[in-house]
Amino acid sequence: MTISRRKFIQACSIPMLGLLTDAQAEWFDDLFTKKNKPIDYQAVSASFNSVFKPEEIISSDKISLEIPLIAEDGAVVPVTIRSDLESVQQIIILVEKNPVPIVAVFELSPQIETVISARIKMAETSKVIALLKTNTKIFKTVQEVKVTIGGCGG
């Protein structure tokens, strides 16, 4: 490939993350590129708090994050996000303790209802965060999911 990975990611994420501020877009870029480096979770959450001001993110009960509380296989965790909020433009799925915490960014047109299902990987027991960005605000909902690789369900 003739272009560097960083350039490529910048090129594809700038239009896609155009709704986010520069600092937020950069934060996502950084996470997508931190592939093989160990991640300091506290630093991630601190940097998360620095780009997404806690007061800008509203914890909302209007988002339902349907995910098993106990996932027997971390490789396949079904997740469904649905919401009654108006004019949702982006849905972002994060798994706090994954080596690459950001799982997916969906950019929705008004033609699509705010209902999305996917299957995600989880490295270990962790919080799953869904962020919904409308044209003015960011809403969030969090669910702790326990991953039992041993399969005893405990």
Binding site: N98, V100, V103, A104, L108, I112, E113, V115, I116, S117
Partner: peptide
Amino acid sequence: YNDTVVVKSKLGSGISKNPYFSFLLKG
């Protein structure tokens, strides 16, 4: 949908093998 882009998504490696997605279209 009818040649208009309705969902653009950027995925990471945190999506499971053989990925499954579902979307709900108005109309």
